[in-house]
Simulated assay, not measured.
Amino acid sequence: MSKLKTWLRRGAIGVAAAAIAVGGGAAATRAFFQHQTAERLRIDAKDGIQDSAFVKLPSGEQWVVIRGENIANPVLLVVHGGGMPTSLFAEDYKSWEKDFTVVHWDRRDHAKSLARAGGRIDPNQGVDSFVADGLALTDHLRNKLHKPRIALLGWSWGSRVALTMAHQRPDLFSVYVGTGQAVDNSARDRHIYDHMLAVAKTGKHPELLAKLTALGPPPYDPPSRWKEVDVLEPVYLKTEGPKKSEGQLYRQALAMPDWSLTDLLTHKDAGRTIRRQRSLAVYNANHVWKAAPLGRDFAMPMVLIQGEYDHPDFVRPWFDGLRAPGKDLVVLPGTGHAAIQMQSVRFGQALHDHVLPLARSWEYGRPADTPVVQPEVKPVE
Rank of each mutant, 00 (worst) to 15 (best):
Thr202His: 02
Arg190Ser: 12
Lys244Glu: 15
Ser156Trp: 06
Leu172Gly: 11
Gln168Pro: 00
Arg188Thr: 05
Val235Ala: 07
Asp184His: 10
Leu197Tyr: 10
Thr164Asn: 05
Gly158Phe: 02
Ala214Ile: 04
Glu233Gln: 15
Ala198Met: 07
Leu254Ser: 09
Pro242Leu: 14
Leu152Asp: 01
Ser174Lys: 02
Lys243Gly: 14
Lys204Tyr: 02
Trp155Met: 09
Ser224Leu: 08
Ala182Pro: 05
Ser224Ile: 12
Ala253Trp: 01
Arg160Trp: 06
Ala162Phe: 09
Pro223Leu: 03
Thr179Trp: 02
Asp189Lys: 04
Leu163Gln: 14
Glu246Pro: 07
Leu209Cys: 02
Ala200Ser: 03
Trp226Thr: 08
Ala166Asp: 06
Lys204Glu: 13
Ser245Gln: 11
Gln252Ser: 15
Ala210Ile: 03
Leu237Tyr: 09
Lys238Trp: 02
Glu207Trp: 08
Arg190Ala: 12
Ala182Ser: 14
Tyr250Ala: 15
Pro222His: 10
Glu233Cys: 08
Arg169Glu: 05
His191Pro: 07
Pro170Phe: 07
Gln168Ala: 10
Gly241His: 10
Gln168Ser: 08
Trp155Gly: 03
His167Gln: 13
Pro222Val: 01
Arg160Cys: 10
Tyr176Cys: 05
Asp230Ala: 15
Trp226Gly: 10
Leu172Ile: 00
Ala214Gly: 08
Thr202Asn: 00
Ala210Pro: 02
Lys244Pro: 03
Glu246Tyr: 10
Ser186Trp: 00
Trp226Gln: 13
Val229Trp: 02
Pro206Trp: 11
Thr213Ala: 08
Ser159Lys: 11
Arg188Asn: 12
Ala214His: 11
His205Trp: 13
Val235Asn: 04
Leu254Tyr: 04
Asp221Leu: 07
His195Asn: 12
Trp157Arg: 08
Val183Ile: 15
Val231Asn: 12
Glu246Trp: 10
Lys243Ile: 13
His195Leu: 14
Val161Leu: 11
Thr239Cys: 06
Asp221Arg: 13
Met256Ile: 00
Asp230Arg: 15
Ser156His: 01
Ala214Pro: 12
Tyr176Ala: 11
Asp189Asn: 15
Val175Pro: 07
Gly247Met: 04
Trp226Val: 05
Leu212Ala: 07
Gln248Thr: 14
Asp189Ile: 05
Pro222Gly: 09
Thr213Lys: 06
Arg251Trp: 08
Lys243Arg: 15
His191Trp: 14
Ala255Arg: 01
Leu197Lys: 07
Asp230Asn: 15
Arg160Ala: 10
Pro217Met: 08
Ala151Ile: 04
Glu207Arg: 04
Leu237Ala: 15
Tyr176Asn: 02
Pro218Arg: 07
Ala182Tyr: 13
Gln181Tyr: 07
